[in-house]
Amino acid sequence: MPHTAPLLELDAYLTLNRASLGEWLAAIREISGCEDMACRLHRGGGPVGALSALESDQGFIVCIYASQGMDMTGCRTAAPVLLMPLAGGAEIARQGGCWQPLAKLTVARPEDRFHLRLPEFSRVMILRPRTDILGSLATPDADRLISACHELIDCYLRRSLFFRDHNHARQMTSELFCQLGRISRDESIPTCDCSGLDRRLLRALEQIRRDPDWDFNLKELASHAGVSERNLYYLMKREAGITPYRLYQRNRLTRVRYQLVDCQCTVPHISRYAADAGFSHLGRFAALYREHFGELPSETTQWRRNLLRVESEQAEDPLAIS
């Protein structure tokens, strides 16, 4: 079976893919810290979805992809969180009330004990600050501030395509939460500076991402982007802070991560996956992997195996309703 991942924001931090219901529930509970969260599928069994997650000093971001329809209930938070619909018409219910469309960036407070209804192929982003920085966003007259936050998060997601490494990703994520806090306090509304990301950069990224078998060739990449080799190098360094080869290397590492996340075997084939992506020296590959994702390849596979063990231990859990 090919190792593929759905279109999902922060895909370089894919944590779970093609999850069973038990794995999904164990992962969501661990990430949210809510042990009584439950999940009910709208129909049948099979893979439930995928998750990407990125943690920083200031907060935690989780992107959810539902490969089939589901209701997630018992979502209790210690502090307000932001829910951002990305695709697919998700709905929210608060305090046991009626379902309403999750049509825009929304603040969910601890007392809401909200439920989420995710249709098939829907995507939702959850932003969980470490401290309560979102209080004023929950007021009825906060539409202007919410709109500014939405624009800021959109900008962050566009920039995430060009994260240089794990430290840069954490730094940008912490900065996002700090900016959200300033907006919430109505101290300032930062100006988004990436609405016009150069199309030549995006064309180069498209070339790098679309073909797993493509070997790096700066001349060919520059031709696809529509600039000279020299101009592409300096354009990417100036606009994204990353070289063309570094971007290519990060995307190769991300493809290996997809395979490791999918791996459910007792002994993961890390060396084979690395070699298939062009990394011939396993020690160097492991160091690069940790530099880009903040963990070793073995830690990525161990997290999935831990979920499988939890699923086995909780096979009779009445909250995991299929």
Rank of each mutant, 00 (worst) to 15 (best):
Y248C: 06
P268A: 02
G283Q: 07
Y245E: 14
L288E: 13
R238P: 06
Y233R: 13
Y289I: 07
G294M: 01
R272H: 05
G241A: 11
H269S: 09
T266F: 08
R250Q: 01
P244S: 07
M236S: 09
Q249H: 13
G283K: 09
A275L: 12
A275S: 11
Y248W: 13
I242E: 04
R250H: 02
Y289P: 10
H281D: 13
E239S: 12
Q259Y: 03
L232A: 05
Q259V: 06
K237M: 10
Y289G: 06
R255F: 01
A240P: 07
L288K: 09
H281T: 13
R272E: 05
V261L: 08
D276M: 06
G283S: 11
F293G: 10
C265V: 05
E239V: 09
M236W: 02
L288C: 15
Q264L: 13
R250P: 01
A240V: 11
L260R: 07
L235E: 05
P268F: 02
P268E: 00
R255Y: 02
R257F: 11
R238I: 10
S271L: 05
R250N: 09
L235K: 14
Y245I: 15
C263T: 12
V267M: 00
L235N: 14
Q259E: 07
T243H: 11
M236G: 04
Q249M: 10
R257C: 10
L282N: 01
Y245C: 14
Q264T: 15
S280T: 14
Q264P: 06
P244A: 08
H292L: 12
V267I: 08
A277I: 06
M236R: 07
C265P: 00
G283C: 04
R272D: 06
Y258V: 15
Y248P: 13
G294Y: 02
H292V: 15
F279C: 03
D262T: 15
P244Q: 08
T254H: 03
L232C: 04
Y234F: 14
L247M: 09
F293A: 03
R238K: 12
V261I: 14
R250T: 03
R252G: 09
A240W: 02
V256D: 00
Y233F: 08
Q249P: 04
V256H: 01
L282F: 02
Y273A: 08
D262S: 15
S271Y: 02
R252E: 11
D276A: 12
S271C: 10
H269Y: 04
H281Y: 10
F285E: 00
A240C: 06
Y273L: 07
Y233S: 07
T254W: 01
V256M: 00
L288W: 07
E239A: 14
T254G: 07
A277S: 04
Q249D: 12
R250D: 00
V261D: 07
Q259P: 03
F279A: 02
Y233P: 04
L260P: 10
L253D: 00
N251L: 05
A274W: 08
G283R: 09
R252P: 09
S271A: 15
R290G: 07
Y234A: 06
T266E: 13
Y273V: 12
G294A: 02
A240F: 07
V267N: 05
A286D: 02
K237S: 13
L253Q: 00
L247E: 05
V261S: 12
M236F: 05
Y258C: 12
I242G: 03
